[in-house]
Simulated assay, not measured.
Amino acid sequence: MPFEAKPEGAVLPVLEPGYLSIRALRKEFDGFVALDDVTLDVRKGEIFALLGGSGSGKSTLLRCLGGFETPTQGTIDLDGQRINALPPYQRPINMMFQSYALFPHMTVEQNIAFGLKQDGMARDAINRRVGEMLELVQLGKLAKRKPHQLSGGQQQRVALARSLAKGPKLLLLDEPMGALDKKLRSQMQLELVNIIETTGVTCVMVTHDQEEAMTMATRIAVMDAGWIQQVGKPDEIYEQPANRFVAEFIGSVNLFDGVLDEDLPEYVTVRTPLFPAPIYVAHGITGYEGQPVAFALRPEKVMIGKDEPAGDTNKAQGVIEEIAYFGSHSVFHVRLPSGAKVLSNFANSQRWASDGLTWGDTVWVHWRDNDGVVLTS
Rank of each mutant, 00 (worst) to 15 (best):
S21N: 15
S330D: 14
S344G: 00
H333T: 10
A34P: 06
F3C: 13
P241E: 01
R368P: 01
R368Y: 04
G178H: 07
F29M: 05
A101K: 01
N194E: 06
L102S: 06
E308R: 15
K117L: 09
L173P: 04
N84W: 12
S328T: 00
P87K: 12
L136E: 08
R43Q: 12
L134P: 02
V281Q: 09
L78I: 06
T215E: 13
A213Q: 12
V38N: 01
V33N: 06
S99H: 15
Q155E: 10
P299S: 11
V201T: 15
Y238D: 04
S354I: 10
Q187A: 12
K58V: 11
L173M: 09
M133C: 01
M121T: 01
Q118Y: 05
T39A: 15
D224T: 01
Y267M: 09
G318Q: 09
F346N: 10
E4L: 07
W364E: 05
Y238M: 11
D181Q: 05
P309Y: 02
G311S: 05
P168C: 04
D312E: 03
I47M: 11
L116V: 00
G53V: 04
N370C: 07
P337H: 13
A159M: 10
D36E: 09
K58P: 10
G284L: 11
E46C: 04
I304H: 02
M216Y: 01
L297I: 05
L20A: 04
A34R: 04
F3D: 14
G287Q: 07
G167R: 13
L274F: 03
H148T: 02
G52S: 09
A247G: 10
K166C: 01
D181R: 10
G66N: 14
R123T: 15
P7K: 10
S99W: 05
L102W: 01
E300L: 03
A347E: 01
L357G: 04
D235L: 11
L260T: 06
Q156H: 02
T202H: 05
I220S: 03
K117E: 15
P265M: 04
V130I: 06
E236F: 06
D30F: 11
R123M: 08
L170E: 08
T215H: 14
K341R: 14
I196R: 01
A113H: 01
G9N: 06
H148W: 03
R26L: 01
K44M: 07
D263S: 13
E175C: 13
M133A: 08
A10M: 12
D124E: 13
Y325H: 02
P278T: 12
P13Q: 05
E262C: 00
M121L: 14
Q149P: 04
K166Y: 04
Q156I: 03
H283G: 00
K144C: 00
H208I: 09
Q240L: 08
V365E: 02
A324N: 11
L172N: 03
L25S: 07
A85T: 15
Y288D: 08
L51M: 14
Q189R: 15
D361H: 01
V204Y: 02
V268A: 09
A143M: 06
E175W: 12
F245G: 07
G152L: 08
F3K: 15
Q187H: 09
K341E: 11
D209A: 03
R123S: 09
V293D: 10
